[in-house]
Simulated assay, not measured.
Amino acid sequence: MGKFLPLLIRFVDGRLMQVSSITEAELALAGQWPNKEADVYREAARLLVSAREGTCTPDIAFIAFEKAARQQRLLKPRKPSSGLRILDSLSESN
């Protein structure tokens, strides 16, 4: 399991991938993206390499990856877990 909350990515070819670590984010960049020449994609790729090399924090690199996926409309919403649904229903009843 990765360090980050999992992101669900749907590539251009329809393939799904769950991403929750820097390594998985690097693998996801190799998938089919709408525009691999976009600045946001290239910045995410650069920061992920920097995080692996230790010159960038993993948090910043993962945020850049999430931003790139969101801007290219690859990020898919996830349903809240059953535990979160229970907590939400409890907080709404008060």
Score class of each variant (00 low, 15 high):
1 M>T: 14
1 M>F: 07
1 M>E: 09
2 G>P: 04
2 G>Y: 00
3 K>N: 10
3 K>L: 08
3 K>Q: 08
5 L>C: 08
6 P>E: 15
6 P>K: 15
6 P>H: 13
7 L>N: 01
8 L>M: 10
9 I>Y: 00
11 F>N: 06
11 F>G: 10
11 F>C: 09
13 D>P: 01
13 D>C: 06
13 D>F: 01
14 G>F: 01
14 G>P: 02
15 R>P: 07
15 R>C: 10
16 L>M: 10
17 M>L: 08
18 Q>G: 14
18 Q>R: 13
19 V>Y: 00
20 S>K: 07
21 S>V: 14
22 I>A: 09
22 I>E: 03
22 I>T: 15
22 I>D: 08
23 T>R: 02
24 E>Q: 10
25 A>C: 13
25 A>N: 05
26 E>N: 02
26 E>M: 05
26 E>K: 03
27 L>C: 04
27 L>Q: 06
28 A>G: 03
29 L>M: 15
30 A>S: 08
30 A>M: 10
30 A>G: 08
31 G>T: 03
31 G>A: 09
31 G>C: 09
31 G>K: 04
32 Q>P: 00
32 Q>N: 09
32 Q>I: 01
33 W>N: 07
33 W>L: 04
33 W>Y: 04
35 N>T: 01
35 N>R: 11
35 N>W: 00
36 K>E: 14
36 K>V: 09
36 K>G: 11
36 K>F: 08
38 A>W: 00
38 A>N: 01
38 A>F: 01
39 D>A: 06
39 D>K: 06
40 V>G: 05
41 Y>E: 07
41 Y>N: 02
42 R>W: 00
42 R>M: 12
42 R>Q: 13
43 E>H: 06
44 A>W: 01
44 A>C: 06
45 A>S: 09
45 A>I: 03
45 A>R: 00
46 R>D: 10
46 R>A: 14
47 L>S: 03
47 L>H: 05
48 L>C: 07
48 L>Q: 04
49 V>W: 01
50 S>C: 05
50 S>I: 08
50 S>K: 10
53 E>D: 13
53 E>P: 02
54 G>Y: 12
54 G>P: 07
57 T>Y: 06
57 T>D: 12
58 P>I: 02
59 D>E: 15
59 D>I: 13
60 I>H: 09
60 I>A: 12
61 A>P: 00
61 A>D: 12
62 F>Y: 05
62 F>I: 07
64 A>P: 00
64 A>L: 06
64 A>H: 04
66 E>C: 14
66 E>D: 14
67 K>Y: 03
67 K>E: 12
67 K>M: 12
70 R>L: 09
70 R>P: 01
71 Q>M: 11
72 Q>I: 01
73 R>Q: 13
73 R>L: 12
73 R>N: 12
75 L>P: 05
75 L>T: 07
75 L>A: 11
77 P>S: 09
78 R>A: 13
79 K>D: 13
80 P>T: 14
81 S>Q: 02
82 S>Y: 15
84 L>E: 12
85 R>I: 10
85 R>S: 05
86 I>Y: 11
87 L>G: 01
87 L>F: 06
88 D>C: 07
88 D>V: 07
89 S>F: 10
90 L>M: 14
92 E>R: 09
92 E>G: 00
94 N>C: 10
